[in-house]
Design a protein around this nucleic acid. Structure first.
Length: 741
RNA sequence: GGGACCGUAGUCUAGUGGUUAUGACGCUGCCCUUACAAGGCAGAGGUCCGGGGUUCGAAUCCCCGCGGUCCCACCA
């Protein structure tokens, strides 16, 4: 051993070693003592970023530790391949258009595989001990077939349906999205007060932020309350008149107004007035118009009063109408209306309001529209109570993260729209339509891509849904099932056996652990719980371990635009994978985590400390030796070490890897190196075999304890001093027996 | 509007009812002692955000503030 560890050499040698000696990484589903971890499949962007590094180092720590405890661990690595970002790269960077579907999909596949290669290399460098034989891609033949199989299963059980509904539509991405992907953004807006003539010569005053939807106006709603006439024959809520100091000319009860019709200017349509308990009397003028569709309320009211459906927004978010607004963008239409309706607009108020947007994709954030379309849905709206019961069976770490899920479940108000239109780089539906009915394809034809597999589709003589692919969360949200599938099939997959595979998978549920970030509780965690329960009537996992986000040193989110992104590869180049792991494992569950170069440096120093103790053993040629009479100092350190192992185990069981690491480090550095080792130097010089025995065995134990944190240096030193077999073949049980025996 | 989390030494951070409040970095002094100066030894540094309450005892539990982060919510 040289004076300093050379990580360039160690990393390379140990990676080679693990590629040849990874028996301990492999999971055997037929063996007992299973510990199965459901890991997040990273999206194949090409970058394994610091967040991936953090979460996988965490998972790997646990996997290695559990193996040393004698568990048969499944640590899978998967890749989530489909999605819009890849399409955009292909279109914008490679300049390949979507016209030729086959060519486009091939380009997507190439791009994705290239990205996986580079990400895979980073994951290897991090020292991850995933099962090399069970790496999955959501685009694998087996994965696609299984995903389609689960959809067919849901369809046959009546849990998946095709419906025409107003759906959330992202005009920018030109696709439908699910409520899991939508959220509200607070924005500046304009509230238009528009005068609408009644057929009695008076006018009612409505307030709206969406005047451009005028062509879709199909009704007027008022609250069941008092309304008054103010100047210029305007009728508003009494509340509004008082608040704005208008002179009240006459007062009406709501039912006196309800009997009139309203003439919508510009389009000359007469619509009716309805009084409704859900109208907010205190907002605006207490009068609202219904346009199909400006927001979810409109959908409710349209259905309640059986109103017409007049769509005036196309897929690109442009206006459809038979007047001069036709073809305009929404904003242009809004501006133009200021001119066209100038005799009707009483005032325009600047307001801050929440706008429904495509929040799941931070590079989109486009405002959403409601457009009626025929799509596939998974039913979830009516089973909220069930879902709430399901989540109770899962243990959350930390417990308060459960609130995010409960909060979300309570808010479900629509079924899960799983169709994505205009998305080519996705999994197609295994269904076809014939005589207005939906049928599933035969299992033996899975996976099926009706856009390409014309041979397969021929026999069905029906219309496939070639313009739709499934929501990407549909693919990733069966990961707990798929990781077991891959363990069962052993590279020998036959779609005809899907029913058998499925029945077998169920036996292994729930798996031990899901680990993921809190930002995808409402998507990945929720979706997985829903899918797996609907399919199997079992919860997917017993434990959900939730971690926070990685922030920069100042506590800001990392983003390309801020230029504060830390690349794990650079850290590993400059320091070591072990040092990066040291930093990652100082995080406590649930909390956001600042990147800290100081902690990386401390980690590196600790690795060097371990190394130098190893050198001391090597220089003094410390071998197994014979234990004779233990001295006080020997007994003390042995006892302390045995207690440390117990304490460390408690920390792991509570997912407190930070405490584990701090406690172990303190023992190594202070108790063992600074105290014990200094004390026994004389004895070592005098060839005291008991001291050598203690030194030899405790240091070996230290290497084992530190190994889940710093696998490289511990594996390397272990080979130099102890054995050429992988250190993961060691067991805590054996170690304890040896030292205390 | 509702909710969650957080506020501990110069900085970051653990602790969630019980002796001198954890650890890291930084800081001060001494030491190049053949495993290690990316080290060793010794040390300084805290009104645990503020106020009130519960308790024999509060950083920890409760209430009220102040400050921060995040999530959710249909108000046109």
């Amino acid at each position: 051993m040289d004076k300093r560890p050379d990580y360039k050499i160690i990393e390379k040698e140990i990676i080679d070693f693990w590629e040849k000696n990874n028996k301990e990484f492999n999971f055997d589903i037929n063996k007992e003592n299973k510990f199965i971890i459901d890991t997040p499949p990273p999206f194949t962007s090409g970058e394994a970023h610091i967040g991936h590094a953090l979460e996988f180092i965490w998972i790997d720590f646990l996997a290695r530790y559990k193996r040393l405890k004698g568990y048969n661990v499944l640590l899978p690595l998967g890749f989530d391949c489909h999605g819009l970002p890849t399409e955009l790269k292909i279109i914008n960077k490679l300049k390949i258009s979507k016209e030729n579907k086959k060519e486009f999909l091939e380009a997507c596949t190439d791009w994705t595989n290239k990205n996986i290669d580079s990400m895979y290399k980073t994951f290897i460098r991090l020292g991850l001990s995933f099962d090399r034989n069970k790496v999955y891609k959501t685009t694998d033949r087996e994965y696609q077939a299984f995903t389609q199989y689960t959809l067919i299963k849901l369809y046959k059980e009546g849990l998946l349906k095709r419906d025409k509904n107003p759906i959330m539509w992202c005009p920018k991405c030109q696709t439908a999205i699910s409520m899991q992907e939508a959220g509200y953004i607070n924005k500046e807006g304009e509230l238009f007060y528009i005068r609408l003539p009644l057929n009695n010569g008076k006018n009612i005053l409505i307030a709206t932020t969406r005047p451009e939807l005028i062509n879709s106006c199909v009704g007027i709603l008022i609250a069941k309350d008092k309304y008054v006439e103010i100047e210029d024959n305007l009728i508003v809520s009494k509340n509004y008149a008082i608040k704005n100091n208008y002179n009240i000319i006459e007062e009406y009860n709501f039912d006196e107004i309800e009997k009139y019709n309203v003439k919508i200017p510009l389009i000359n349509r007469e619509v009716k007035i309805y009084s409704d308990q859900d109208v907010d009397y205190n907002y605006g003028t207490g009068i609202v118009w219904i346009c199909t569709y400006g927001d979810p309320e409109d959908i409710k009211w349209k259905n309640r009063y059986n109103l017409d459906e007049i769509v005036s927004i196309d897929d690109k978010g442009n206006i459809i109408s038979n007047n001069e607004l036709n073809g305009l963008k929404l904003k242009e239409a809004r501006e133009k209306l200021k001119e066209l309706l100038k005799d009707y607009i009483i005032k325009i108020e600047k307001i801050k309001h929440n706008v429904l947007s495509h929040t799941e994709r931070s590079d989109c954030l486009s405002e959403l529209e409601f457009i009626p379309k025929e799509q596939f849905f998974i039913k979830m709206k009516d089973i909220k109570d069930k879902i709430l019961n399901w989540q109770e069976k899962i243990n959350f770490i930390p417990e308060y993260m459960r609130n995010k899920l409960i909060d979300w479940i309570n808010n479900i108000d629509q079924d899960w729209n799983i169709s994505r239109t205009k998305m080519l780089w996705g999994l197609p539906f295994p269904f076809y339509e014939k005589d207005n009915k939906i049928y599933a394809v035969d299992l033996e034809d899975l996976p099926i891509d009706p856009r390409i597999d014309k041979e397969k589709t021929k026999k069905y003589d029906g219309r496939f849904f070639e313009d739709e692919t499934v929501d990407v969360w549909i693919e990733s949200s069966i990961s707990p099932l798929v990781i077991i599938l891959y363990s069962i099939i052993n590279n020998d997959f036959d779609p005809k056996n899907l029913d058998n595979y499925f029945e077998k998978i169920k036996e292994y549920l729930p798996v031990n652990l899901r680990q993921q970030g809190y930002e995808i509780i409402r998507t990945w965690l929720f979706d997985t719980l829903l899918r797996v329960e609907l399919l199997t009537n079992k919860i997917p996992w017993n434990n959900a371990l939730i971690h926070g986000m990685v922030l920069d040193e100042k506590g800001r989110k990392m983003s390309k635009s801020l230029g504060n992104v830390v690349d794990p590869k650079e850290i590993m180049d400059k320091y070591s994978p072990d040092a990066l792991r040291f930093w990652a494992l100082l995080l406590s569950p649930g909390n956001d985590y600042k990147f800290s170069i100081k902690d990386i440096e401390t980690g590196q120093a600790f690795a060097i400390k371990l190394w130098n103790i190893g050198r001391y053993l090597e220089m003094n040629n410390i071998k197994e030796n014979k234990k004779e009479e233990l001295k006080e100092e020997d007994k003390y350190i042995i006892n302390k070490f045995l207690l440390l192992i117990e304490e460390a185990d408690r920390y792991v069981n509570n997912y407190r890897y930070d405490e584990y690491l701090k406690t172990v480090k303190k023992f190594v550095w202070e108790d063992f190196a600074n105290d014990y080792l200094e004390k026994i130097k004389e004895r070592i010089k005098n060839n005291d075999s008991t001291a050598k025995w203690v030194l030899y065995n405790i240091y070996k134990g230290i290497l084992i304890l530190v190994h889940p944190v710093m696998p490289y240096i511990t594996e390397y030193i272990y080979q130099q001093l102890y054995s050429k077999s992988p250190i993961l073949e060691e067991r805590f049980e054996k170690l304890i027996n040896n030292i205390s025996g």
